[in-house]
């Protein structure tokens, strides 16, 4: 990078709205924060005095804990609110709930929501920074970033890297964030899954589509295997778990044709024996637990950047 990239964004709503330079900046910032978690005293004073509220309208353990640890290691004060347990949300609209939280003078709101675009609604309504921790089938930008960080750490440059994303692409926010981020950094992306779980016109995002898992594995430097939600079967999206495993389950046998240094990734939680066999999940190719470790560093970087934003930037969202 010849020109120094300066972070100006207040919110992180999706990787679609970031430039390649901004993504690189996050990854570089992540690298410096990663070291903090290896110290004996895992804490830096960077965000002392900042208040961060996480608002989880959908069950999540990994992401919620990861954000909370990231905030705590930066010395921020954190409050976690989960829908259903909190009176502040009862019968209230998302906007009203957020307005109430805003009135408590918080700096960052982290939102997990089952509907796509909910963080955009929030970002328009309130002053604090909004971080999307997963919205419907739209994006999960911090997951995308930690996936990409892990790939970069293991493989060096992303340019020309061949990444195959396997599984339920249609309902996956992880897939979308991966695609945006990877494409911006120059990777070649293939998506592979049953035709019923490949969303319409996804090729226009610049990805290759295949329904042949062996083909998706053969050329890949990285396999990012998605969790299949078993309920989808009831909506006639695939006939049975058995057939799903036969056609799209990643196992040792199938990896025989893979590159010797292939990386296996998974955003978790894994359905062991379905999208991944246990021997693959625990194999030398697997970096699944490193992804979790990196997740904290990525989220520290994001919290650091959005709270330090120079401000005055227009709020991003999908434009017409």
């Amino acid at each position: 990078m010849t020109k120094k990239t300066v972070w100006t964004k207040k919110d992180l709503l999706g990787l679609e709205y970031l430039t390649a330079e901004e993504i690189e900046l996050i990854l570089d910032t992540t690298r410096s924060f990663k070291e903090v978690s290896t110290r004996k005293v895992k804490k830096v004073p960077t965000l002392r005095g900042k208040t961060i509220v996480s608002l989880f309208f959908e069950p999540s353990t990994r992401t919620r804990v990861s954000f909370e640890l990231a905030a705590k290691r930066l010395s921020a004060d954190t409050v976690g609110i989960t829908a259903g347990t909190s009176s502040i949300l009862k019968g209230e609209t998302l906007k009203d709930a957020a307005k109430n939280i805003e009135a408590m003078n918080v700096d960052v709101v982290i939102l997990r929501h089952s509907t796509s675009g909910a963080p955009h609604l929030l970002a328009k309504a309130i002053e604090p920074s909004v971080i999307n921790a997963g919205d419907g089938a739209h994006e999960h930008p911090t997951q995308g970033l930690l996936d990409i960080f892990t790939m970069r750490e293991k493989k060096g440059s992303l340019k020309g890297l061949k990444v195959s994303i396997i599984g339920d692409i249609a309902h996956s926010r992880v897939a979308r964030s991966n695609i945006w981020g990877l494409k911006k950094l120059g990777a070649d992306v293939t998506v592979c899954g049953p035709s019923t779980l490949i969303p319409l016109e996804i090729e226009k995002m610049g990805v290759r589509v295949t329904n042949d898992l062996d083909e998706a594995i053969k050329s890949a430097d990285v396999l990012n295997v998605l969790r299949i939600q078993l309920e989808r079967q009831k909506k006639a999206l695939f006939p049975s778990i058995r057939e799903y495993i036969n056609l799209f389950g990643v196992n040792k046998e199938r990896l025989k044709n893979a590159k010797k240094d292939i990386l296996i990734m998974h955003p978790g939680p894994i359905n062991r024996g379905i999208e991944l066999t246990p021997d693959v999940a625990d194999s030398e190719y697997s970096v699944i637990l490193e992804q979790v470790t990196n997740g904290i560093a990525v989220r520290m970087a994001i919290l650091f950047l959005v709270t330090g934003a120079t401000g005055g930037s227009p709020r991003e969202g999908r434009k017409k």
Partner: peptide, 13 residues
Amino acid sequence: HEGYVSTVTGLRG
């Protein structure tokens, strides 16, 4: 509408 925009936005088509 189900098409490219619904795919990108993650809104059901």
